[in-house]
Each structure stands twice: as C-alpha cells, then as structure tokens.
Design a protein around this nucleic acid. Sequence first.
DNA 1: ATGGACAATGTTTTT
DNA 2: CATTGTCCAT
Length: 731
Amino acid sequence: MNRLDGLNIQQQQAVRADSGPVLVLAGPGSGKTRVLTQRIAYLIGTIGVRPYNILAVTFTNKAAREMAARVAAPLGEDLKFPYMGTFHSICARILRRETEHLPFQTNFVIFDQDDQLSLVKQAVRELNLDEKRYRPNSLHASISNAKNELLLPDDYPVQTYRDEVTQRVYRRYQEMLLANNALDFDDLLLYSAILLEETPAVRERYARRFEHILVDEFQDTNMAQYRLLRSLSSFHRNLFVVGDADQSIYRWRGADYRNVLRFREDFPDAQVILLEQNYRSKQSILDLATAVINRNPQRISKRLFSDLGQGKKPILYEVYDDRLEAAFVVDTIRQLTRDQRAEPGEFAIMYRTNSQSRLLEEAFLQANIPYKLVGAQRFYGRKEVKDVIAYLRLVHNPNDELSLGRVINTPPRGIGSKTYLFLKTQAQRQGISPGQLLLQLNRPEFSQILEAAGSRAKSALLHFGALLGGWIALKDELPPLSLMDRILESANLHNYIDDQSDEGQDRWENVMELRRLTAEYQDLGLEAFLEQIALVSDQDTLEANANAPTLLTLHAAKGLEFPIVFITGLNDGLLPHSRSFEDPEAMQEERRLFYVGITRAKDGLFLTYSQNRSAYGYSELVSPSRYLDDIPHNLLDELQPSHKSRSAFPDGSRPAERWESSRLGAPSQERQNPVIQPQFSAGMRVKHPAWGEGMVLNSRIQDDDEIIDVFFAGVGLKHLAASLARLEIMT
DNA sequence: ATGGACAATGTTTTT
DNA sequence: CATTGTCCAT
C-alpha cells in the first residue's frame, strides 16, 4: 500500500520535497502533523536516511514519542530517534555531551520557574536593591528576554539606570546558577546556540550529523532557537520547517513569527508549500475563524476551506456572571452526553487565564462529572511533590543549593535557618558548596568547623550529612523508584506529608502519583528522569484515554483538536487581556489566541461571556469582548437568557436543544476523515511480524488513528499505530 | 527552633 | 481570595 494515499497534492509535495530548505505554511487543521510524520517515514523508508541522522523538533515531548512510534511501526523495526523532542530537551542532550566546552558539569540540574525566581530574589537581596522597586518577577522577565536574544550579561544593552541594575542582577544570577551547577530553561537554548556558533569543531560535528532537520510550530521559535537551527543545518541545509504566522502566540517569551520572513531571507532557495485545506472543522467554524483573524493587519490572507460540510452555527451565549457561565458549560455537556449526542471526552473548555479554571472545576465537581485539567505546573508545582523531587535532585547534584535549602529541614530535623546559614557561610569560606561541606563534615579537616556549631546543630548536621551520603552511594545502583522509596522511608516523609488530615491524605496521594510516574521512567536513570520532569509540558500531562471533558488554557490548546469546544470568558480585559491593551503587537497576538481557540473545534463551538466577573473575590461589571463586534451576525447563533436571572436557563431555552436530534458531529457525508472505531482493547493478545506475541495494555484514538500500547515479551512496551503496524489479533 | 498570627500583595499566557 | 512573607510567643 502506498503510504502517500490519503494525502492531497500539496501534502504529498511536502512529504516528498527534494533536499534543501523547505517552508511549509500550514493553516489550522491542514494535516501538518501527518505531513511531518510521513516526511520522516519517507526519508527513512524511501531515501534511506538513518534515524540517527535526523533531528526533529516537536512542540511537546509526547508528540515526539508518538511521531517516533508511528514512523517505526510500519517499518517493523525498533527505531530510535535520539534527537526527536522539544527544543529544550534536545538542547539538554547536546549540552550534557559537550560539557568539556562549557562552564558547568554534565550532571547539571534544570531549575524550574520557582527556583529561577528565588535565585533572582536572592541576587536582588545580595545587591542590596529594593525589592519593591526592582521586582524579581520583572527582572527575571528582562533576563529571560535577553537570553532569548542571545545577549549575555556583558552584552546587555544599558541605556537607563534600571538597565544597569538589571545587568548587575543578570550577572549575579548567572554566577549563582553556575555555582549550583544548574541551568534555567533559557540557558538550555542560550548555551547550545552560543556553543555551536563559537566552536566550529562542535558545530561541524552536529551539522554533519543532522542530514535532515524538521521543525514543527516554527512561528513560535525565538532568536536563540532560530540561530541554533541555522547552525545545525549549516552543513546539509536540509531544514524543513512547518508553521503558521496566524497561530503565533508566544511573543511574550521571545517567539518571533518574523523568523518565517528571516528564513526566506537566509534561505532564498527555499521551497514554499502552502497547506490550505482544512480537514478538521465544519465550514461554519472556519468562517467564524476567518472573520476574527482577518481583522489583523499586515497578514497574508489565507482562505480556510473544508469539505466537511457547513455544520451548525457556533453558539454565542451571555450569562449573568462567571458562576452561571460554569453552570452553563457543565449543564450543556450533561445534556449532550445524556442524549448520547456526544461523549464526555469530546468536549474541551478553554479560557485565557488559569484562574478561570476554578469555577469550572467546582461546577464539574458539584455535578459529579469527572474532568481532565491540562497543566503540568498544577501537579509538579505542589509543595509535597517539589519536596520529594528536591531530594532526588540533591542526590543527583549535591551542589544544588536550592534543593538543599528546601529539604534540609523538611521534615524538621533541627536545622533551622540559623544553622543552615552557618553551613552556607562556612562552605563559602572553604570555597565549596554547602552540599559538599555537609557531606564531608565528618572529615578531620573540618572538625573545627563542627565544633564552632552548637552541639545540637552539630549532631543534626552530621546526621543529615550521613543520610544524604547514604543515598548518594546508592544512586547509581538503584533505579529512581527504589531510590525514591528509600528516601521517603529514611527521611520519614510519609508521616510528615500525611498528617492524617484530609489535606494530608491528598498530599500523600500526590506523592504516590509521583511515584507512579517515576515507575514509568524506571529504566531511564536518575538524571534522565529529573530532566524529563523538569521539561514536561502542560500537554504532556494530558491523558488521552480518560473519557472526560478537558479544561485548558487557550495557549495549552495549541496543536490539539476537539469535537466540541467552549471558549469561556469572552470579555474585554480577559480576551483580549487588559495587560495587552496598550501594546498593538500584543493585541494582535490576543486575537490570534482567540483564532487558535476557535480552530480547535471540529463540529461544535460555544462562545460564552458574562456581564459580571469576580476578581479578588469581588464581582464587577465587565463588557463583552471587542472581538465579538467584529463577527458578522449571521455567523453566530445568539442565545441570551433574560438578565439577572439566577438560573442558567430561566426561559427554558436549553441551548443544547438547538442541536436537534441528530447525533452531534455526525456529518451527512463522511468522506475525508472516517471516524475510526477501535479494534483493540486492553487484554487482547496480538501478534506482530517482528516482535511476536504481545498483550494490549491500552488503546486510544488520536488523529484518525488508533494508538495502542502493547507489551511484547522480551521486547518490552511498544506504542503502535493500528493502521500501520501489521498486527494480528489472536483468539 | 518552631509554629502560629497577621499583613501585604498580586493574576496572562509556559518550556 | 489565597498565597507568601514577617513578626512574635513559646
């Protein structure tokens, strides 16, 4: 069977493009993931490129895993793509191998947002600056922007006094990171880009290796990422990028859709391929999307068309306040699912800010409907989870002062701030990190130091040092899971975290969830495990198999699709967000964000806004989003209950009933995208031509294909695409 | 050293 | 309101 079946002319052109630079401009729903996957399969299967020589940058790590699985399955081999992943994880990999050229060691840790902020705070304090005047948050943003522009502290442009202060903080911040043997997110890109630009031998090694480079979501690359790509592709020049300027939503973290223009300048011979046909949404949804995005100036107007049928008009609904908004969402979902017109998992609810999820969650909880919340931060940001991770991080890299500070007295073991300060001061005097000193305290040369501490402090420090030393001795022998268990046990964390209160039990549940996640990465080793945790994206946490509505921000929705989408909080100040009001560029991005949200919907779209909205606990009158004024009336079905009512449906107008009796989303003609029925289910025994017999553990439908997890004896767990893997069901 | 009480202060979006 | 920081009594 020809693998190019089912692709349109432009898609095929992209998949089989000759070597050289290629720019694919892909509108929403135009099948770009498929193109990328098929392109890689084509390079390997037809051109004979080895996976080793391919670099593929995806938007999430999960996307990378799935892409690899799909490419590997039809070839029936166990293909490994060492360089497939997000920019950040690819950079981390490069940096760990090249530390001989770099100012840190190979076991560096990656500092998360909180760590970064507390480091900036520390720097601000050390420099005796006024925290009110120089907010750590804003300084960190400036530093981050500089890094994304590849500006080191010495290059930081100083025009005002504030710039000068920022430069000083930046310099100190960098020193502190290195002292901790730690990098922040931006450093991963920064050091990689600079290393490649300034070390020709290294650049050449990678540039020669990567015969083909493929990049997804190219419109969201920043300068560091762009320059990195330029270096990496400098030998073979086979740079295949896919993007859509209308979906650029990360300007605030340095992304610049003008990289698309830059690309055409730097690679004038680039082939440009346009993917316009939409295979996702009903025309009525695309019409709305077009009406919204066309108001942005200076853009190349693309036409969005689909032959999935006209579909029903998106519904616009006004509510009295945000509580009723949540009630409306939950109620509508309940009705549509009860009438069997949709499955719970077919719904997504999107919003501009994370805080908006709360009322929605409460409404779902109250209605007893399970839901999924997208957001890695929500889980990994919890104190108890961070604490346990900090222990692991410290064991992996004892120089990590922040982790040490976090765990040294958690649970309380008699090392309060005074004693910890003492340890830090002494360490500084010795020119070593506090962690190193702690580990060596029992050596004779440090006996005076020990005596200088009080006797209680002395024994507490010695005890914890011994504990830490014990774990470190085990770290290479035990898998991360066993190490974690050991730590939980010997640090007595169970009793500390679960104090028998309800919250305590919740907290321990979270730790057990972390433990479960650790089990999944059992064979990775501690370093890789910690790296994965540090670089998980929000979308990575999305469980594909739970059949429940998904709650997520508009940003997190990028690249996803759902049969029925709610976009809530369509109020001025929220979407567009008030923080963007004064900046025209930012305002255009707000509009693109709305556009991204709309184009996630396949069959149904609900837009909601409220007359009042609560912030800080107070409710205030708000206006509908200005974007609603731009939409011609005939594109929306407007429903408005009478004002000030206390029920979401006072007049008995139940919006769900507008959807008539036919099953939602069952189109009259299903030609392009037949809905796939799962053929496999957990527990089934199957046979693979290369790997033999296996057991199906899980099955889910994604992007018109069934993805199944199969365990093969002797081979291990495999993720396979049902349409591609030649599996035989055994009876 | 520890824990509790109170104030202050802050909300965009994320790797 | 909800988290975080600071001060004070034990």
